[in-house]
Design a protein around this nucleic acid. Structure first.
Lengths: 168, 168
DNA sequence: CGATTCGTTCAAAGATAAATGAACGTGGGA
DNA sequence: TCCCACGTTCATTTATCTTTGAACGAATCG
């Protein structure tokens, strides 16, 4: 599927010349597909893909100019990626702008993602199950099913940390 | 449709008047929240939650009437749940209608979900990476990053089956 | 057979989520 | 100090996903 439409280059003050090679475009394409699979915004995939394929840190402006996305998208996407630990800001001497790089270690990516998504869910579940317990008979199907849910939660709590180890 | 009662009320063949207990509602609520967390349609959570909390198999009509959702939603939701192995159709003698029950074994649910979502993605990735290889230099950053992606894919392929075992 | 029940399909409506861009706060440099 | 580069925020627009319900085919019933 064709995607990239070349437009006259935006004025780029000093940061990177905003052109993508065919190879870089392929990487971005890959991560856009991955983002869709994870039901994340396309822009997350674009941003991460660009950084993943970059040898050098990228500035905010560089990202916006290269991907032709809005500043809003870039700002929000980068924030989310940082909370997952998928993107870091690195210091560059004598430049006050932020410089972004992708974290490429699979274990860190997965554990970061899980601890920001699955873990909070698990914790919320515990309280929710207590709430259910208050409205369910102490005998019968509903009671049995509640035990089942509790066992799910227990297993989840045990398995989550192990996933990280599997990827080490 | 005439309102006359033409049938003994022994087996509930009614399409209206289905009522949920407070306990059942709590279970449905739980699974609706879970569906949202998994970014699945709310109706999936409703349907699965209802079946999870049911001691008896439910008919299609029963589900539609109890949850007050459209036939379309019910049909599509049940289909998806069946492809994940989260819902099964059970045979009931002398009744031509489908009867649905929830699969409650965590290991089956997770492996069913993964083999319908993650596994196809992994397989699609393999081809995609070959495609990237054709457009990337045999040296340099892009080449290195492609190797990295290949290693991700390899790890994924090894880890996926293990997840099932962890849940046994 | 024809009538009825069962469940599916799909175009359209409705609901949600993502992207945009103007307005804004912050802080660095002259 | 003032000015401007940097990045964030958020109301609005746009895109995408979900739900609905009428139309439909298949299977069973009378």
């Amino acid at each position: 599927m064709p995607a990239g439409v070349r437009r006259p280059a935006a004025k780029t003050r000093n940061s990177v010349g905003a052109e993508l090679s065919a190879g870089e475009t392929e990487f971005i394409d890959f991560f856009v597909a991955l983002a869709r699979a994870l039901r994340a915004p396309k822009s997350l995939g674009e941003i991460y893909g660009l950084l993943f394929a970059s040898s050098e840190p990228r500035t905010f402006e560089g990202i916006v100019a290269t991907l032709r996305i809005s500043r809003g998208s870039a700002s929000q996407g980068l924030r989310l990626l940082r909370t997952f630990g998928a993107v870091r800001v690195v210091y560059v001497a004598g430049d006050r702008r932020d410089h972004f790089v992708a974290e490429t270690e699979l274990r860190k990516l997965v554990t970061g993602f899980l601890s920001e998504t699955a873990l909070p869910q698990l914790e919320a579940s515990a309280g929710r199950l207590d709430r259910i317990a208050e409205r369910v008979p102490t005998k019968g199907v509903l009671h049995d099913r509640l035990q089942k849910l509790r066992s799910w939660e227990r297993v989840g709590r045990q398995v989550l940390p192990l996933v990280g180890k599997l990827l080490g």
